[in-house]
Amino acid sequence: MIDSVIIIEDLHVSYYGNEAVKGVSLSVERGKLVGIIGPNGAGKSTFLKSMLHLIPSDKGSIKILGKNMKEVRKKVAYVPQRSDIDWDFPITVLDAVLIGTYPLLRLFQRPKKKQREWALHCLERVGMKDFARRQIGELSGGQQQRVFLARALAQNAEIFFLDEPFVGVDVSSEETIVQILKELCRSGKTVIVVHHDLSKANDYFDQLILLNKELIGFGTVAEVFQPEVIGRAYSSQFNWLNEMGVSMP
């Protein structure tokens, strides 16, 4: 029996008065690392945010772990785009990660030694434990993204959503993040990633969601990376993809 942790039916979403997602239906199995790809303006981030109920949908159904998002929010972790975060906010790396433990605490309970040790463990997992006392604004882009992944890990969620996590990130941080995401999936977690670099999709993901406002393709990388499927999403950009060396499995 297939264990679908995300089920979406006929999803329509408008953004600033324009329909950004049209009639998307799909289901994602537990333990998969899934990339959301498509050209600029295809509605990738809008689609992800609608799944999280960060922006409202016009119509359609979204079930996460068989329930509405409000009922399972503690089991869902979200890493937003770096451009959506105020890096000037005066907070240390450790305190930023501790925020990830809040959903696991009782009302008005403050993090204690147990939570601090867990946060430090999550920082160690992403290679950032030595930076625990640094202000988050002092870090490089790759270091900041590792910290926000550590915050998501601290939540001990079942499903992880990441919006363009590799933008402005150094190669070492990107490799570390990908390795951790794959480890999460091997342990039964599910990971959804908005991604723009098609040349790495085959190495990173189990499945791809190809969007251009509507669902163009969904399946394994080999199934989606067919010339006729990619061509329907990128159309005029298709020749450019070939010139960039994006090969089809």
Rank of each mutant, 00 (worst) to 15 (best):
M1W: 15
D3W: 07
I7R: 11
I7E: 15
E9Q: 12
L11S: 05
H12F: 11
V13F: 00
Y15N: 10
V24S: 01
V28F: 04
E29P: 04
G31Y: 09
K32N: 12
L33Q: 06
L33T: 03
N40V: 02
K49W: 02
M51H: 06
P56Q: 07
D58K: 02
D58Q: 11
I62N: 03
K63I: 03
G66C: 11
G66Q: 11
K67Y: 12
E71F: 13
K75S: 15
A77D: 00
A77R: 03
A77S: 15
P80Q: 05
D84R: 14
W87I: 04
W87C: 06
W87G: 00
D88Q: 11
D88H: 14
P90N: 12
D95A: 15
A96T: 13
A96R: 01
V97T: 10
V97E: 05
G100I: 07
L104S: 13
L105W: 14
L105T: 13
L105P: 06
Q109T: 14
K112R: 15
Q115V: 03
R116N: 12
W118C: 03
E124Y: 14
V126P: 01
K129G: 13
F131Q: 05
A132C: 15
R133C: 14
I136N: 11
G137T: 08
E138P: 09
G142T: 01
Q144I: 00
A154E: 06
N156P: 11
N156V: 05
E158Y: 07
I159C: 11
I159V: 14
L162C: 02
L162K: 01
G168M: 02
D170M: 04
D170F: 04
V171I: 15
S173K: 07
I180Q: 01
I180M: 08
K182S: 08
E183S: 09
R186T: 11
R186C: 15
S187L: 10
S187H: 08
K189W: 06
T190N: 11
I192T: 01
V194Q: 04
H195V: 07
L198W: 07
Y204P: 00
L208W: 03
I209M: 10
I216G: 05
G217C: 06
F218E: 09
G219A: 12
G219C: 08
G219R: 09
T220M: 12
V221W: 04
V221S: 03
E228Q: 15
P249Q: 10
